[in-house]
């Protein structure tokens, strides 16, 4: 029996192969399909989740390495029915095109804002360089991160 803590909820389940990347356990066993499969080798960032608050590529992380840690996925980014300011900005600025990479983009951006509440363009470059968007929504991603940062700073005042 394996125990994982995902989005502040404890999941107990059987797993034949604990080397199975976390991505597939989230998607196939726990039904959390918001985290996406893109490349399987940590190149595209579509599978980004947080492990103890820091972004990891779940396609390349053995599930055994996530046991006993706090995992957050896109499904857990909004709290108590309240959208994260990034999610709100993503909707307001109509960021997605196909939308497939956006969960990963949001998770990378959420980590950025948790450490750097008022990021510069350079901070955004560094935080987001690992997330591919084949549709090319980068301009809006940058704008939405700035907008969410503004929202957070206003809420903090």
């Amino acid at each position: 029996m394996l125990k994982l803590e995902v989005n502040e909820r404890i999941y107990n389940f059987d797993l034949e192969d604990t080397h199975s990347p976390l991505l597939w356990v989230l998607r196939d066993q726990l039904g959390l399909v918001g985290t996406k499969f893109g490349c399987g080798m940590g190149q595209c960032g579509a599978c980004t989740v947080h492990l103890n608050g820091a972004p990891v590529r779940s396609c390349s992380l053995p599930t055994s390495a996530a046991v006993g840690q706090a995992i957050t996925t896109i499904e857990g980014l909004s709290r108590e029915g309240q959208l994260h300011p990034l999610q709100q900005a993503w909707v307001e600025l109509d960021v997605p095109q196909c939308g497939y990479c956006q969960a990963g983009q949001l998770m990378s951006a959420a980590f950025l804002l948790s450490n750097t509440p008022s990021p510069t363009d350079e901070d955004i470059d560094n935080a987001m360089v690992g997330n591919l968007c084949r549709c090319g929504t980068y301009k809006r991603i940058r704008k939405a991160i700035h907008q969410a940062a503004d929202t957070i700073s206003k809420e903090g005042q």
Binding site: G34, K36, F37, I74, L77, W90, V91, V95, P96, L106
Partner: peptide
């Protein structure tokens, strides 16, 4: 006018939307 995509809320909250998400 500018309208946000009709699926955007589901997309940013990780709802099953795509082919690969079907169960």
């Amino acid at each position: 006018s500018r309208k946000s995509g009709v699926d955007n809320l589901q997309l940013v909250t990780g709802k099953p939307m795509f082919g690969i998400d079907q169960k």
